[in-house]
Amino acid sequence: MGVFGLQTSNPAFNSYFWKKSRNYTKDKMSINGIILKSFAMLTLVTITATYTWQLFFSGVSIKWYTAIGMFVAIFCSLFISFKHDSSKYLLPIYALAKGFFLGGISAYAHKHFPYLPFQAIAVTILTFFVMFILYRFKIIKVTREFRAIIITAITTIFMLYFIGWILRFLEIDVSFLWGTSWIAIGFNTLTAIVASFSLLLDFYYIDRQLGRYSKEREWLATWGLLITLVWLYVEVLRLMKKLAIRF
């Protein structure tokens, strides 16, 4: 059972994107291929993030780097969503653009709270491996009910964020989204937990497709994992900033 016809929290792992390809190849998806592509894309993210970071601390304004990076990443994701065969070509652009965005928000956070981004990265990496172990040893089973709950939670969260961004442009403050109250911290904690559980759904859908679809689909799988990891890092960073302000 899904929400709005979706079968997973991540559009990259929706059944629409995994329908049988017309281009048949003997080479099939493999976990090694996904791992290699993930490391390559994360390297691209790191390159542009480091560059933006250095610009910021050398006194250069990075406002446009961060904003343009965010919008380019959104455009690439939307295009891949409707034209999934383009993931092979657009994913590197997405990774580079996302690096500008992440480098920008991380530099701002580091300026006010030294080393906070590095702590957020460590928490994100640790969470990834914890979720993988929980999935690998079936400590948490990804059942239909579990998927339905996580999908519903993610859909609700993103709808709230979307409404919150619109209201923010209208100069209407939604304190539980952007504030530092205990309610805001509670909401941010919930979103970070949901982002963590989203990794389990990603593992589940990748696991189901290994050896069944063409090797080209490894790009789509990598895109899906990257989306979740970036979301998790952003939520963890926001939560840690709010806690740092409170304490």
Rank of each mutant, 00 (worst) to 15 (best):
F137Y: 14
K241L: 10
D207I: 09
R22D: 15
W165T: 11
F113C: 02
V142I: 09
R144H: 07
L96C: 10
S15G: 05
L6V: 07
F71H: 12
L90T: 02
S198C: 05
R212N: 06
L199R: 08
W219H: 15
I193P: 00
A40Y: 06
L177P: 14
G2A: 13
S175M: 09
Y51E: 07
I34C: 02
M159P: 01
L229A: 10
G33W: 06
A109H: 07
I47W: 03
S15M: 02
T46Q: 07
L232D: 03
T155Y: 04
R217I: 06
I34S: 00
I183K: 12
K37N: 04
T156I: 15
F56N: 03
T48G: 08
L229N: 08
E171R: 09
D27P: 02
D207V: 07
A195N: 04
A49D: 13
I121L: 06
M1Q: 10
K111D: 09
T189E: 04
V3W: 14
L160F: 15
E218H: 01
I74K: 13
F4Y: 14
I121Q: 00
A148H: 09
G186I: 00
R136M: 10
F187Y: 07
Y65Q: 12
L190N: 02
A221E: 04
I31N: 02
R168Y: 15
L226M: 13
V194P: 04
K88D: 09
L220A: 14
F129P: 03
T8A: 14
K241H: 03
Y135E: 09
